[in-house]
Amino acid sequence: MTNETGDGVRRQLLRIIPCTLWVIGLTIGILLLLSQSAAATVGTELASSALSVPVLETSIAETLRDADGITQYALIFVLAAIPWLEIVVVIPIGVALGINPFGVALFAFLGNVLPIYGIIAFYVRLKAALGWEQPNPNSKTSRRKNWAKRIWNRFGLPGLALASPVIIGVHLATIIALALQSKKRTVALWMTVSVFVWTVALTVSAHYGIESIQTIVG
């Protein structure tokens, strides 16, 4: 029964993940391409307002666009290390701006995965210093934790790790996994695998999604 359930979950993930990646790539590609096109004629602020592009994503795109060379990659590294931005936001924007996809993927991966190891190494100290033992039940973070625990209860650590980049972020997922008494090495392994898989998938989907849009619009 357990094997059948596991096989069913894997089949569902194989159906859902490719569609999700394609939608992410197309959606962000469309928004950024339209924003860039409109900005050329009516200005960045008006374009962002008219197209309802999220302010944060627009600011990230503008910051990366204004930088060049190694500075762009350094910014990608830093942005990918910020919780809730991470690779899901940074990679599609970087690829859409025409930055080398391999460079985007590499620096986004490193920026996203290295803080995981820091959290794991210093978890006990961080827990005591930040008061993670006494969460506020009304906070958004606590609601995200409850959501993550439901995923954990159903799919275990692998499910939490693989779902975390698009649901709660890998950094919060790492904290939750450790709080649920998972072994540190196992958490590090699954979170690294998750970040790697999503980095490759997001880079490929963003690259080909944006290429498709450019082909369509001529």
Rank of each mutant, 00 (worst) to 15 (best):
L75S: 00
V124P: 01
G159C: 06
R185S: 08
V104K: 06
A96I: 03
I30D: 04
L13H: 12
V124W: 09
K149M: 12
A206F: 07
R143S: 07
T44F: 09
R154F: 10
F196Q: 01
R10S: 08
V104L: 04
E62D: 04
L33D: 06
K149C: 11
A128R: 15
L32F: 14
I99P: 00
T20Y: 15
V170Q: 10
L106V: 13
P101Y: 10
I76E: 00
L34A: 12
P18C: 13
V166Q: 04
V90S: 02
L51E: 06
L31F: 11
L106Y: 05
V113E: 01
G43L: 11
R125V: 10
T20N: 04
G29T: 13
L33C: 02
S194Y: 13
E57C: 02
Q12H: 13
V204D: 02
I60G: 00
F122D: 08
I120G: 00
E4P: 00
L110M: 11
L46K: 09
V113P: 00
S52R: 10
T41L: 07
D68E: 10
G29I: 14
I99C: 00
S164C: 06
V170Y: 13
L202N: 08
L126W: 12
I175R: 09
L126P: 03
A105R: 11
S212W: 15
W190D: 04
S52W: 09
L178R: 11
V197P: 01
I91D: 00
A179Y: 07
L114D: 03
W198F: 07
A121Q: 09
A80S: 15
A163Y: 00
S35V: 02
S37R: 14
S35F: 09
I82N: 01
R65E: 02
I76L: 08
L162D: 03
L114E: 03
N112D: 01
A61W: 07
G156Q: 08
R150S: 09
R11P: 01
L178K: 06
Q36N: 09
L160D: 02
N153A: 11
I168F: 05
S142L: 06
Q134R: 15
G29E: 13
A38V: 10
G131D: 12
V42S: 05
E57Q: 07
R11E: 08
P137W: 13
G111K: 09
I210H: 03
T44D: 08
W190M: 04
I151K: 03
L106M: 12
V200F: 10
A206T: 13
S52P: 00
G209Y: 05
S49F: 01
R185F: 00
A206V: 10
L75T: 02
P18Q: 15
A50Y: 03
V170S: 11
P83C: 12
I17T: 14
T215A: 12
